[in-house]
Deep mutational scan, measured.
Amino acid sequence: SLSVDNKKFWATVESSEHSFEVPIYAETLDEALELAEWQYVPAGFEVTRVRPCVAP
C-alpha cells in the first residue's frame, strides 16, 4: 500500500522574543526536524527542539 504512517511531533520554534511549539507530521524524528527547519528557518525562526508527541 502507499499509505504513509505519519506521526505527530512537537517542534519548539524560537524567535528573538518568543518561543512556541508547533505540531509537525512526519514519519521519523529526522524528517520532522527537516520539515520544521524548512518551514520556519526562512521566516527567521530557530528550531531548537523536536520531540515525539506522547499520547496521554
Score class of each variant (00 low, 15 high):
residue 25 Y to K: 03
residue 56 P to A: 10
residue 24 I to W: 02
residue 16 S to K: 12
residue 17 E to S: 09
residue 13 V to K: 00
residue 31 E to S: 06
residue 28 T to R: 03
residue 31 E to K: 14
residue 15 S to K: 11
residue 21 E to P: 01
residue 36 A to Y: 03
residue 21 E to R: 05
residue 55 A to N: 12
residue 8 K to I: 14
residue 41 V to I: 07
residue 43 A to C: 14
residue 46 E to N: 09
residue 11 A to I: 12
residue 14 E to N: 07
residue 8 K to Q: 10
residue 47 V to H: 05
residue 48 T to G: 02
residue 31 E to G: 06
residue 48 T to K: 09
residue 4 V to L: 08
residue 31 E to V: 05
residue 7 K to G: 06
residue 26 A to S: 03
residue 2 L to Q: 11
residue 42 P to C: 09
residue 26 A to N: 00
residue 41 V to F: 06
residue 39 Q to D: 04
residue 39 Q to Y: 14
residue 17 E to L: 07
residue 34 E to R: 15
residue 5 D to C: 15
residue 1 S to L: 11
residue 42 P to H: 09
residue 47 V to T: 01
residue 56 P to R: 03
residue 53 C to A: 09
residue 55 A to Q: 11
residue 38 W to A: 14
residue 25 Y to W: 14
residue 17 E to A: 05
residue 14 E to A: 08
residue 49 R to M: 15
residue 25 Y to M: 05
residue 6 N to E: 07
residue 45 F to Y: 13
residue 48 T to R: 05
residue 21 E to T: 08
residue 16 S to W: 09
residue 9 F to S: 00
residue 20 F to C: 07
residue 29 L to D: 03
residue 28 T to F: 03
residue 43 A to P: 05
residue 37 E to Y: 14
residue 49 R to D: 15
residue 30 D to K: 14
residue 16 S to L: 09
residue 27 E to W: 07
residue 6 N to A: 07
residue 52 P to G: 07
residue 2 L to T: 12
residue 28 T to V: 02
residue 20 F to G: 01
residue 27 E to K: 13
residue 44 G to V: 01
residue 33 L to C: 07
residue 44 G to M: 02
residue 13 V to F: 06
residue 40 Y to V: 05
residue 50 V to H: 02
residue 13 V to D: 00
residue 7 K to P: 10
residue 32 A to V: 02
residue 53 C to M: 06
residue 33 L to R: 15
residue 4 V to S: 12
residue 26 A to F: 01
residue 54 V to Q: 09
residue 51 R to K: 05
residue 27 E to A: 13
residue 26 A to G: 03
residue 1 S to N: 12
residue 18 H to V: 14
residue 51 R to N: 05
residue 24 I to E: 00
residue 23 P to C: 14
residue 27 E to L: 11
residue 53 C to R: 01
residue 10 W to S: 03
residue 10 W to H: 03
residue 33 L to P: 00
residue 35 L to F: 09
residue 6 N to Q: 11
residue 44 G to I: 01
residue 19 S to E: 05
residue 3 S to A: 10
residue 19 S to T: 11
residue 17 E to V: 10
residue 52 P to Q: 09
residue 18 H to S: 10
residue 19 S to M: 07
residue 37 E to K: 15
residue 6 N to R: 10
residue 37 E to D: 04
residue 47 V to P: 04
residue 3 S to T: 12
residue 24 I to Y: 02
residue 5 D to A: 14
residue 50 V to Q: 00
residue 49 R to S: 15
residue 36 A to R: 01
residue 32 A to N: 00
residue 39 Q to M: 15
residue 56 P to D: 11
residue 8 K to S: 05
residue 16 S to Y: 09
residue 42 P to M: 07
residue 41 V to T: 06
residue 44 G to R: 01
residue 13 V to I: 15
residue 46 E to D: 07
residue 27 E to P: 10
residue 27 E to T: 14
residue 54 V to P: 13
residue 15 S to I: 05
residue 29 L to G: 04
residue 51 R to S: 06
residue 27 E to V: 09
residue 31 E to I: 05
residue 43 A to Y: 14
residue 46 E to Y: 15
residue 20 F to Q: 03
residue 13 V to M: 05
residue 43 A to M: 15
residue 35 L to M: 12
residue 36 A to C: 06
residue 51 R to L: 07
residue 46 E to H: 09
residue 47 V to C: 04
residue 42 P to D: 07
residue 26 A to T: 01
residue 18 H to P: 01
residue 40 Y to C: 05
residue 31 E to M: 11
residue 27 E to F: 10
residue 47 V to I: 08
residue 52 P to D: 07
residue 51 R to A: 06
residue 54 V to R: 07
residue 31 E to P: 00
residue 47 V to K: 00
residue 25 Y to N: 04
residue 4 V to W: 08
residue 49 R to T: 15
residue 44 G to A: 03
residue 49 R to E: 14
residue 53 C to S: 09
residue 41 V to N: 14
residue 39 Q to H: 10
residue 30 D to I: 10
residue 22 V to W: 04
residue 38 W to D: 10
residue 50 V to I: 13
residue 44 G to Q: 03
residue 54 V to K: 09
residue 34 E to W: 13
residue 51 R to V: 13
residue 31 E to R: 13
residue 8 K to T: 07
residue 19 S to Y: 08
residue 32 A to K: 02
residue 17 E to T: 11
residue 2 L to P: 14
residue 40 Y to M: 03
residue 20 F to I: 05
residue 55 A to T: 11
residue 8 K to M: 13
residue 55 A to S: 12
residue 36 A to P: 02
residue 10 W to T: 04
residue 42 P to Q: 08
residue 49 R to Y: 14
residue 56 P to S: 12
residue 37 E to V: 13
residue 26 A to D: 00
residue 6 N to W: 08
residue 46 E to S: 10
residue 29 L to K: 05
residue 31 E to F: 04
residue 9 F to P: 00
residue 16 S to R: 11
residue 6 N to D: 08
residue 33 L to M: 11
residue 11 A to F: 07
residue 7 K to W: 11
residue 49 R to V: 14
residue 41 V to Y: 05
residue 29 L to C: 15
residue 32 A to H: 00
residue 1 S to W: 10
residue 40 Y to T: 05
residue 34 E to F: 14
residue 26 A to Q: 01
residue 32 A to G: 01
residue 12 T to H: 06
residue 13 V to G: 00
